[in-house]
Every structure is written in C-alpha cells, then in structure tokens.
Write a protein that binds this DNA or RNA. Structure first.
Length: 200
DNA sequence: TTGACGATAGTCT
DNA sequence: GACTATCGTCAAC
C-alpha cells in the first residue's frame, strides 16, 4: 500500500518548498470506480497576498478566491478562458492564501480512460502536458473545488520516487505577464528532461 | 445588470 | 505565429 500524503504535508508554510516536493508525487482521481492519474512533473507556486500573479494578491477575497484562504490540503479549481478547468492545491494554514498549480503529470494509471477523455488516438506526450489538459484527462472540474485531498475522489500519494534537487528546473511562471516584477520570479518547477512537461 | 477579461488549447494560415 | 472558443467571476454602473 502506498502512502497518501497527509494534512501535515500541505499545512507547511513554505509553498515554494512544497511545490518542489510535489514533483515525483502521484495525483489520482476516481470516477465511477475508475482511477486515473500519474506522476506530477511540473508545478507553479502562488505565494500569497504579496504575489501579484496570485488571485489572492493584495488580500483579495471573493467568492472565487475564498477557497485559497482555507486550511491547506484542499483543491482550488477555477475556470480559465471560459473553457478550461485548472487544478491547484491549497497550502499553508487558514487565512494564508497560497496555492500550487499543477501544470503537468506523467500519466501512469487508467491510460485508456485518459486517452478516451482526451479524444486522442494514441499514447502521446500531449495527453497531460498542460494544466487544462490534465484536468480533462483526470475529469476534474468546478464541482471538485474545495474538495479535501485526504478523503475525497482526488488524492496524492508518495511512491518514494526521489527527485534530486539537481534535476529540478526552476524558471518563470506561464501566462502571468500582468504581474510586474512577480512575473520574473522563478516559481515554476519541473523535472529536468521529462518529456511530459508542458511546453512554453 | 452589464461588460471586460483570463495561471489555455486546438486549429488554421 | 495568429486567431478564437466560451463562461464564471468581479467590479463598475
């Protein structure tokens, strides 16, 4: 039996560190008895009220962003461009609105189901190499917002895969040009040479 | 109540 | 490389 990540993993206050720790961990969802998922290979940290790229910048609190202010260990999902669902993991403790965007996974479980959801004919690298692609592949949508990652249909596991620090690439986040100097922060992390990482 | 907009992806040129 | 699909959210009216 593999170890499901517990609450303490998410409640830490160093979201940058958690973003790195998430590389090599496994994300799964269950739908109608079918489990799909894979290894996380790319993440982005959104570090709270001082981060101009974050929805919670300047302590902004709305019906959408209130999820981020909750205790860590839950899912923050929102709609992007009216079409795409993006999956984030809330970190830190209550009233510390930080989150990590999962940008890409390497699919390992339920591959046939993933392929059929993505309407792709063969097993290709573009199945889950983007934040909206992986939510479609794992059937994550707005209904999963606020879901607890300890005891719901979405969870993470530690399968004892160690990603060495030297194999973690740190670079700038994607699609946040509006964020001023925060657009230059190296808060995107991915596994070096992994073919499932999203393309710039 | 309205309108502008986005932490993207797929298609077309 | 450019174009656009498409809708929940949010701030302003």
């Amino acid at each position: 039996m593999y170890n499901k990540l517990d609450l303490d993993f998410y409640l830490r206050n160093d979201t940058i560190q958690i973003s790195k720790d998430l590389l090599g961990k496994f994300l799964f969802t269950k739908s109608k008895g079918i489990i799909t998922g894979g290894m996380i290979v790319e993440t982005e940290a959104y570090t709270g009220i001082t981060d101009r790229a974050s929805h919670a910048y300047n302590n902004k609190k709305t019906t959408r962003t209130k999820t981020m202010y909750k205790n860590g260990g839950i899912a923050y999902i929102y709609l992007c461009y009216g079409i795409h669902h993006l999956f984030n993991i809330v970190t830190n403790q209550i009233e510390h609105p930080q989150a990590i965007l999962i940008r890409a996974i390497e699919p390992t479980k339920g591959l046939n189901k993933i392929i059929s959801r993505r309407k792709i004919k063969s097993n290709q690298y573009n199945l889950t190499n983007g934040p909206a692609k992986l939510t479609k592949a794992l059937k994550i949508d707005l209904n999963d917002n606020n879901l607890c990652l300890i005891n719901s249909r979405i969870w993470l596991e530690d399968r004892k895969i160690l990603i060495r620090n030297s194999n973690i690439i740190k670079t700038t986040r994607i699609g946040i040009d509006y964020a001023g100097e925060y657009a230059d922060k190296p808060w995107r992390f991915y596994i070096k040479d992994n073919p499932w990482v999203s393309v710039k």
